[in-house]
Amino acid sequence: MKKFKEYAAPTVVLFVICVVAAFLLALTNKVTAPAIAEVNAANEAKARTVVFAAADRFGDAVETSVEKVDSVVPALDKAGNVIGYVVTSHDDKGYGGKISVMTGVDAQGKVTGVSILDMSETAGLGANAKRDTFREQFIGKIKGITVSKDEAGENSIDALTGATVTSRAVTRAVNAAIEAAGGANNG
């Protein structure tokens, strides 16, 4: 009996705590999972209309084999004609790791808008990539965008102050998106 108290009691108590904890977590997950999915879906839908304001609605995702590109969704006008693509792409070499970007590209291969979906860059520095002044630089640019610090020119954007790494990563992701949209245009 004494042995039971010494070994079994702690085991049982710990086990019960674990079971209760797992149960509570499952419960919370059940409540919050739909909300999280909803938030993500709403964010994506909102981002789409931001990067491609001219589109009336969006079609089903098409296949792509371009590296770093996660999805390519055609943008449709009222009549249902494809007028461009909304591409979700990413780059792993941001200052805080992966950066996910959504880019709208029209039929001429010009960028219609850029939106940062997900990133963990430093607040006040890399996180400024979310600001309009940075994102709007991409509008109207075509394939092969550069960061002006590396190569200034017509088709270049100005890097964020103190966050060149982030700026380069976003630019790479946008370039991948343009390539994917171009491929989809031809194919």
Binding site: L14, I17, C18, L25, A35, I36, N40, N43
Partner: peptide, 22 residues
């Protein structure tokens, strides 16, 4: 036991934050 309890609350808070303050 403390670690399990704390970790559960952290996970709960994390899920709530994800859902309502993404």
């Amino acid at each position: 036991a403390y670690i399990v309890i704390i970790a559960s609350f952290v996970t709960i808070v994390q899920m709530i934050v994800k859902a309502f303050v993404p």
